[in-house]
Amino acid sequence: MKYITSINGREYRIEIVDEHHILIDGRTQHVDFVSISGQPIYSLILDGRSYESFVYETEEGWQVLMRGRQYVMTVEDEREKRLRMAGGRGAAESNEFHLKAPMPGLVVSVPVQEGQAVTKGQVLVILESMKMQNELKSPRAGTVVRVRVKPGDTVEQRQTLLSVQ
């Protein structure tokens, strides 16, 4: 299977040849890749060099945390990439963003209203958890739609609080 993986605009062409070999940008390398006890910690021995990292899947792509650095990347196989290029996309931007509670907590305030235009980084909800007031900010500009909570509400982790269109 061939993949195109991009980090910060740089593309890496990686082909998984078999369980122990990959081709990266045309070079063959020997890999020994295991997850440690089924956890999101992965150990890679690449041509004799040992690496370990945490890997998380997020909305923005894969996060690889290694030696104190975080790498965010998208991984696509060739077919996905062709489809995306053909579709022209741009759809991602117009999708709704659903603000979800990152942890259980108490809604302290909702400083925005439905229909209000917000800028990137604007505070949408103040959530109290672990005795701290946490400001949840908009990851992009847009319009607030469907506010689902009010001050005083107790919310569960991953509960949708409001959406930005």
Binding site: M1, V64, G68
Partner: peptide, 26 residues
């Protein structure tokens, strides 16, 4: 730390790890 600015910047290794995990998931 901006990973690109330091000696421990290993994007290729990270790319390999990310790709292998994505592959396993697929």
């Amino acid at each position: 730390t901006d990973p690109e600015e330091d000696k421990e910047y290993l994007p290729e290794i990270a790319a390999i790890i990310g790709t292998l995990v994505a592959h396993q998931q697929t």
